[in-house]
């Protein structure tokens, strides 16, 4: 009779349904959300952090916090971007701590574009090629671009969080775009 006798397939459920259930205490619905977005937010956290070192901690912490705050989510259909926002904040916390410990250099702010290698290996898709370029971008360039274009942060917010002037953030993002577009145009 109970859901455990013959578990229904929650993978077909919309985000709204899963969020509604998870808010009500359904751990399986939350698990379905974790499975639906877990990889995505891990990749995202990796893109922001620039190393795999803290990714697992950041994502796990974020998801545990998400469960806690899920009842406050106003639009259950927007859970994906809401999760990304939590992960962004946690990742930025880690970066702030790293900065306080002097783990981050500013050298990368001044790398000429011409030194960014285009994807040399033949990639099966444009997305793969662009991901390869993204991986090769200097940390701050990639980080700012990802926070802006995927995380939806403003220049000002990024600057505040990374302790950079908005103008620098703007410049970094412009160069990231240029690097990505250069690769993209090669695929025309």
């Amino acid at each position: 009779m109970g859901p455990q006798d013959q578990p229904i397939d929650l993978t077909v459920a919309s985000d709204r349904i899963l969020v509604g259930r998870a808010v009500d205490g359904d751990v399986r619905a939350f698990e379905a959300l974790v499975r639906r977005y877990g990889l995505l937010i891990r990749v995202y956290a990796g893109r922001v952090l620039g190393s795999t070192a803290d990714v697992d901690d950041v994502v796990q912490e974020s998801l545990v916090q998400a469960w806690q705050h899920l009842p406050e989510l106003m639009d259950p259909g927007a859970v994906k971007s809401w999760l990304m926002r939590i992960v962004s904040n946690k990742a930025l916390d880690v970066l702030r701590r790293r900065r306080e410990h002097g783990d981050i250099t500013d050298h990368e702010l001044r790398i000429p574009d011409d030194q960014i290698p285009t994807a040399l290996v033949e990639k099966r898709s444009l997305e793969q090629a662009l991901n390869a370029v993204l991986s090769d971008l200097p940390d701050q360039q990639r980080r700012c671009w990802v926070l802006r274009e995927i995380g939806g942060y403003s220049y000002l917010e990024i600057g505040r969080n990374l302790d950079l002037p908005s103008s620098t953030v703007r410049g970094l993002i412009a160069r990231a775009r240029k690097n990505l577009i250069r690769e993209m145009e090669g695929w025309r």
Partner: peptide, 12 residues
């Protein structure tokens, strides 16, 4: 994700 490979040669 290279932190260091391009550290030198600041761009003007």
């Amino acid at each position: 994700m290279n932190d260091s490979q391009n550290d030198s040669e600041p761009a003007t």
